[in-house]
């Protein structure tokens, strides 16, 4: 049954489906970003598919792992059909190699439930969804600069809204310069970064 969904997609969209794979009962289709919303409408409206449950949408940052010339970001979306009890994951690579002009069509016209997921992805990853009715931050405050889940954002860099009291320092033992969350420091020199702010 699961193979059928991918076959239908490939039959309908042809070259716009750049890659498919199915493993452990999970089907994945990599979609050309230009056909992102068309694929979504087809998945929802075709009676053989009827993906009426929008499960999840998120972004992935391939800052270090990306291949030459590959877009830096990927949008991942999970869908499910309650009638047919099957599901699919569609993915799309967006933006350029350096992560500029990262945008893709919004899925809110297809599933209303995509609204806050896309806002979250925009907030934390910096992926803009074209046609979204309300493209604002949802978790971080409006004054926040940058997108914290990007791999080049220092994971432990805070942006306080109000100045700290005198005599207090931001990070305490064991979270000072050379301690604490090492995986947050793999991809950047956080000392320089903190010096600037």
């Amino acid at each position: 049954m699961s193979k059928k969904v991918l076959d239908l997609l490939k039959e309908k969209f042809g070259a716009a489906i750049t890659e498919t794979h199915a493993q452990f009962g999970d089907d994945t289709a990599v979609v050309d970003p230009a056909s992102w919303r068309a694929v979504a409408f087809f998945l929802r409206d075709d009676s053989r598919l009827s993906m009426n449950m929008f499960t999840d949408l998120c972004g992935v940052d391939f800052h270090r792992q990306r291949a030459e010339g590959q877009p830096r970001f990927e949008v991942v979306c999970h869908l499910r059909s309650l009638q047919h009890a099957h599901r699919i994951r569609i993915k799309s690579r967006v933006g350029d190699e350096e992560g500029e002009t990262v945008e893709i069509d919004s899925l809110v016209p297809v599933w209303r439930g995509a609204d806050w997921f896309e806002r979250e992805t925009f907030d934390l990853m910096g992926i803009t969804f074209k046609g979204h009715p309300d493209m604002r931050r949802i978790l971080m405050y409006p004054e926040f600069k940058g997108h914290p889940l990007r791999k080049d954002y220092p994971a432990n860099k805070t942006q306080p809204l109000i100045p700290y009291r005198e005599g207090t320092q931001d990070k305490l033992f064991p979270f000072r310069e050379d301690e604490g969350m090492s995986f947050g420091r793999q991809t950047f020199d956080h000392r320089n970064d903190r010096g600037e702010s």
């Binding site: 971080m140 914290p148 432990n156 860099k157 805070t158 109000i162 700290y164 207090t168 305490l172």
Partner: peptide, 19 residues
Amino acid sequence: CGGFYDNYTTLAGIDKVIP
């Protein structure tokens, strides 16, 4: 002191803003 949250979103202890 912020606990184990060494991240971009947590205030590392309330004494940063109030006594």
